[in-house]
């Protein structure tokens, strides 16, 4: 599998990989800070647990949005040029997967607005 193919697959899975990164980050940080009682620490007057969740969400959301725009462009290009069916398929799947990932990543940011950090 050449570099171009690997790139296509990575772009197709980008949103879900971003979700995996977000998930690992928010769960890992919350567990560590709460487990060790470090959650009371403040970052510039903001609570550290919700701030971590929000920043991880925003970063991964931005990455997924970039992947979505990029894959959408590929998909549109594929519509106007004669490309192999498999490329059309992969670029379309990339749009769908990255689109769904946006929703999933957003959902994982919601708890920061509702729940207390460690109770």
């Amino acid at each position: 599998m050449g570099g171009r193919r690997t790139g296509q697959i990575l772009l197709m899975l980008a949103g879900l990989i971003a979700w995996a990164v977000q998930f690992t980050a928010i769960y890992g940080v919350t567990s560590t800070l709460c487990g060790r009682g470090w959650a009371d620490a403040n970052l510039l007057g903001l609570e550290v647990v919700p701030m971590t969740i929000l920043s991880a969400t925003l970063v991964t959301l931005a990455a997924t949005a970039v992947a979505l725009i990029w894959s959408f462009r590929n998909y549109r290009l594929a519509k106007h040029q004669p490309v192999a069916a498999v490329d059309d398929f992969v670029s379309h799947a990339a749009v769908l997967i990255n689109g769904l990932s946006i929703v999933v990543i957003l959902w994982h940011g919601i708890p920061a607005f509702i729940l207390p950090a460690c109770a």
Binding site: T30, S31, I53, V104, L115
Partner: peptide, 20 residues
Amino acid sequence: GLPKMSLSFFSAASTAVAVP
């Protein structure tokens, strides 16, 4: 007895998996 915040991430993912 894990913190509610930790549980909520899994709650979100468990809901999300219903979509596919």
